[in-house]
């Protein structure tokens, strides 16, 4: 009975869910000189959120999620470079469509496998795209990338700010908010519940007659489209894109972010991206040559003592307090 009311209640908005957004807006006014970094954090949150949908909710283990990030990034870049299509919001939609299409096509094939085979195949998909981008250097700019991309005003009102990243920050925040709303609705819907079911007990979901593979492919496609939007934001905010958007480093990095924050939780991407990137940024500034040591030790400590990520630490704290209160 309690569980049932809990289930019914969980999709309801709670007062504190406004806090991250208020904090993000507060950062805009408090740190006007750090908005370039802030924009990168917002983009990473969106990318990690897209990964959470497949990894955390649907239980699809992938090391190739940068394939979709890169597809979105290059879609926007190539449209601007070769067709002069500079309108940012339609660029985002195009990036979502292209990345989603690649997600659908590769998902139909890849999701027939699971475990290590799936892991390897996702990695291969990304490597194939990376090599294609390298070989098509006339189109993609290859390793040196596409320099000096410029985009027209957002909604015809706010021009991209090369030096202070003010409009990029707010733009990324607005896009993140919209995407978050989609993901939140999705995971609290019956579709989201069935994804969790697939993750927790595949055989049982088959036994109850759930269309397992269709749902997996659908989740994979939506996630790919969202990753594509993150990639498109990356290109638009930086006015630059090169092969690094398709690298294993980006795939693995976002996975670390998600695991650090706590996967399978809506706000894990937020906590992970902010914790990881802030730590990296501050350490790298203080010790430009040795910051990786500090970051590495932190990650080891979290992996050893907080299996469920940073959010998990607060979870277990709360449980302990509740137990002692009883």
């Amino acid at each position: 009975m309690i569980a049932a009311t809990e289930l019914a209640r969980r999709h309801r908005l709670r007062w504190w869910e406004a806090l991250p957004w208020i904090a993000s807006l507060a950062c805009f006014f408090a740190f006007p000189n750090y908005l370039a970094f802030g924009t990168q954090v917002l983009i990473t949150i969106l990318f990690a959120l897209s990964l959470d949908l497949v990894l955390g909710y649907a239980g699809i283990v992938t090391l190739g999620h940068a394939a979709f990030f890169g597809a979105g990034a290059y879609t926007v870049g190539m449209m601007a470079m070769h067709w002069g299509w500079n309108e940012p919001i339609s660029g985002l939609i195009a990036a979502a469509l292209v990345a989603g299409a690649i997600g659908l096509a590769s998902g139909l094939v890849l999701l027939r496998t699971h475990g290590l085979a799936l892991l390897m195949l996702t990695l291969c998909t990304m490597a194939l795209l990376e090599q294609a981008a390298n070989m098509g250097a006339a189109w993609t700019g290859g390793f040196d990338g596409m320099p000096g991309l410029s985009f027209s005003k957002i909604l015809g009102l706010f021009g991209f700010d090369v030096l202070y990243y003010r409009s990029q920050y707010l733009y990324a925040l607005a896009v993140l908010f919209a995407c978050f709303a989609i993901v939140r609705t999705l995971v609290y819907s019956s579709f989201g519940q069935s994804l969790t079911g697939i993750r927790e007990n595949l055989l049982r979901m088959h036994a109850v007659g759930a269309p397992v593979r269709v749902r997996q492919v659908l989740a994979y496609t939506v996630s790919a489209a969202l990753a594509g939007v993150a990639g498109a934001l990356f290109t638009q905010a930086n006015g630059y894109v090169n092969l690094a958007v398709l690298s294993l480093e980006r795939s693995a990095g976002v996975m670390i972010v998600l695991i650090l924050g706590g996967y399978g939780r809506l706000y894990g991407a937020f906590v992970g991206a902010i914790a990881y990137m802030l730590l990296e940024h501050v350490l790298a500034k203080a010790y430009p040559t040795a910051w990786q040591l500090g970051l590495g030790i932190t990650l080891i400590v979290v992996a050893l003592f907080a299996r469920n990520g940073v959010i998990g630490i607060f979870d277990s704290l709360r449980r302990r307090i509740e137990r002692s209160a009883r």
């Binding site: 709670r14 504190w16 869910e17 806090l19 991250p20 904090a23 993000s24 507060a26 950062c27 408090a30 740190f31 706590g262 939780r265 809506l266 706000y267 894990g268 937020f270 906590v271 902010i274 914790a275 802030l278 940024h281 501050v282 940073v310 959010i311 607060f314 979870d315 704290l317 709360r318």
Partner: peptide, 19 residues
């Protein structure tokens, strides 16, 4: 347990400021 990790969020934001 969302209540708690929201607090984590707020903390992170404060850290963002301080650092």
């Amino acid at each position: 347990n969302t209540k708690i990790w929201n607090r984590a969020n707020a903390l992170a934001a404060v850290a963002f400021a301080a650092c």
